[in-house]
């Protein structure tokens, strides 16, 4: 089941990359995120309160993340060739006239990259809250919210750690390049290569932080709504 969902995700990912040449990257990525949620949440974990609240939380956070990334990373002109790629031999014979704004591609890819982690955290939070709620139906909203946050904390550290170390290898090579060309530290922190990596790590990590309270909140609200409906 897990493997099937993983394979489905990978297929959807490559299809969306293929389609991206023709269309607006934001639309494609949003459709891709919805597909991912459907596969990992509803197919893998079944349709219930947990997954539906996780779905809502993930969609909301990824929309907000697209907006914020567009604003902040767009201000720093994320994407495109960085200082080193500009002069690389094998890229010289590639045409850069691609009729597609590369900034949009970079931003939408940043958000898509973090969605997997968002789904993971959201499901963990809502299912732990559901577990607590099933065992103790009279638990107050505040306490329920707190359980979600406690679990979120423990899972957050490990998820961010994974992303951080996946990027640190890239950091290594980038630092080496800067040393090789004898760039100074001011040059480093103003460069596009550094900015791309920083955006990737820290904005996605911030997204992971935000999903914890959001999914806990959505779960509490949905549970309340359901109870009202039953009563």
């Amino acid at each position: 089941m897990t493997l099937m969902a993983l394979l489905g995700n990978i297929t959807v990912f490559f299809c969306s990359v293929y389609l991206m040449k023709y269309n607006d990257p934001y639309k494609i990525v949003f459709v891709d995120i919805i597909f991912m949620c459907l596969l990992t949440l509803l197919y893998q974990n079944g349709v219930n309160v947990k997954t539906i609240s996780a779905l809502i939380a993930v969609l909301a956070v990824s929309l907000v993340l697209i907006k914020i990334t567009k604003y902040i990373a767009g201000a720093g002109n994320i994407g495109g060739y960085n200082e080193f790629e500009m002069y690389e031999d094998n890229l010289m014979n590639l045409s850069v006239n691609i009729h597609l704004n590369i900034h949009d591609v970079a931003i939408s890819m940043l958000v898509l990259g973090v969605t997997g982690a968002l789904i993971d955290i959201a499901v963990a939070v809502t299912s732990s809250m559901h577990e607590v709620w099933v065992n103790n139906r009279n638990i107050s909203e505040d306490n329920l919210y707190k359980t979600g946050m406690t679990l979120g904390k423990s899972i957050l550290g490990s998820t961010i750690n994974t992303m951080w170390f996946a990027c640190i290898g890239e950091f290594l090579l980038m630092f080496l390049m800067f040393r090789k060309y004898q760039y100074s530290f001011p040059h480093l922190i103003n460069s596009k290569a550094f900015f791309d990596i920083i955006c990737n790590i820290f904005l996605s990590a911030a997204g992971c932080c935000v999903i914890v309270p959001v999914s806990a909140f959505v779960f509490v609200k949905i549970l309340k709504y359901q109870q009202k409906k039953e009563a």
């Binding site: 993983l6 293929y18 991206m20 691609i98 890819m109 997997g116 982690a117 993971d120 994974t162």
Partner: peptide
């Protein structure tokens, strides 16, 4: 834990190279 971790890894590796792939596909 395995499936989710592999999923996260997949996305954090591949997404950063997509813009380059798109430039090449356009070529």
């Amino acid at each position: 834990v395995m499936g989710t971790m592999i999923n996260i890894m997949f996305y954090s590796y591949f997404c950063s190279s997509v813009p380059m792939v798109i430039i090449q596909m356009k070529n």
